[in-house]
Nucleic acid binder design. Structure first.
Lengths: 121, 121
DNA sequence: TATAATTTGTGCGTATGTATA
DNA sequence: TTATACATACGCACAAATTAT
C-alpha cells in the first residue's frame, strides 16, 4: 500500500499541497485495517513523502527552495537524522535530515536539511 | 517510552553493539501493550538509534567510520531521505539519509550518509 | 463563545506468520 | 526441532487537535 501511494504521488494524483484521503477512506478503499493503513502512512512520513498533522488532513508537502550556505575549503560535510530537540527547535517534520558542516578549525554546525544546502566556494 | 530508551542509550546503559531487551520484556518492564512498545522502537529506528532485524534482538548500532569524498569548487551538497530503491540498493538501515553532491557542470550523485562524508578541497 | 464534525493520536488485546539461533 | 524474537494484520475504544458552524 505504501508503494502504491508513493506511486500515485509521483504520478501527480496527489500534487504538492494536496490532501490525501483520510485514514477512514483509505481503510475503505484498500480494504485493510486502520493499523495497516497507518503503518503505510508512517512509511511515507519517514521519508518525507507526506506531512501528517494531528486533527488535520495528511498532505503532500510543497517543495522548499533551500537557502545556500557557503563552506570554506577544508570543511567537511556530513548528514544524520535530527535529535528530538533539534526537530522541535527548528520545527522540522518527520523525514527531514540534518546537514552538518565542520570547518577545518572549528565546531560542527548543524542545519535543517530541507531549508539549507551547502555551496562550495 | 521512546525518550526514556533514548536517554538510556545516550547514558551508556546500552552501548554500541548491545542488544535491547526483547519486545516482550519491554512490555513487562514498562507495563505497556506490545503495540505501544513497538511504536516507541519504531521511533528510535526512524532516527537510527537502534537497528532492528527480524528474528534477532534489536541492537544499538556500532558507529561507522565514514569514507571521505572530495568535492570540487562550485559543487553543491544537500541531503534528503533515500527512496525505497536506494535503501535496497545500498543496504541502508532505517534512519539513514543520503548525501547529494552536485558538481557545477554535471549530474547529482547520491551517497549513503552513514558511509560517506564530503571533504571540501 | 460554544458546539459539532472531521481527522489524526494513543492505547489495549489477539492471532498468526517468518526469520534467526 | 525447538525456542526466541520480530513482522503483519485485525478489531475496538477513547483522547486530542483542527476547522467550520
Amino acid at each position: 500500500m505504501a508503494d502504491d501511494l508513493r506511486e500515485r504521488i509521483r504520478q501527480g494524483e496527489y500534487p504538492p499541497g494536496a490532501a490525501l484521503p483520510s485514514e477512514a477512506h483509505l481503510v475503505q478503499a484498500y480494504g485493510l485495517g486502520r493499523t495497516t493503513v497507518r503503518r503505510a502512512i508512517a512509511a511515507l512520513r519517514a521519508d518525507g513523502a507526506v506531512v501528517v498533522r494531528h486533527g488535520y488532513p495528511t498532505r503532500v508537502p510543497e517543495p522548499i527552495e533551500p537557502e545556500e550556505i557557503t563552506a570554506e575549503s577544508g570543511s567537511r560535510v556530513s548528514t544524520r537524522m535530527p535529535t528530538p530537540d533539534e526537530r522541535a527547535e527548528f520545527g522540522m517534520p518527520d523525514g527531514v535530515p540534518m546537514l552538518v558542516v565542520t570547518p577545518p578549525d572549528g565546531l560542527p554546525m548543524a542545519y535543517p536539511g530541507h531549508q539549507y544546502a551547502v555551496l562550495i566556494e
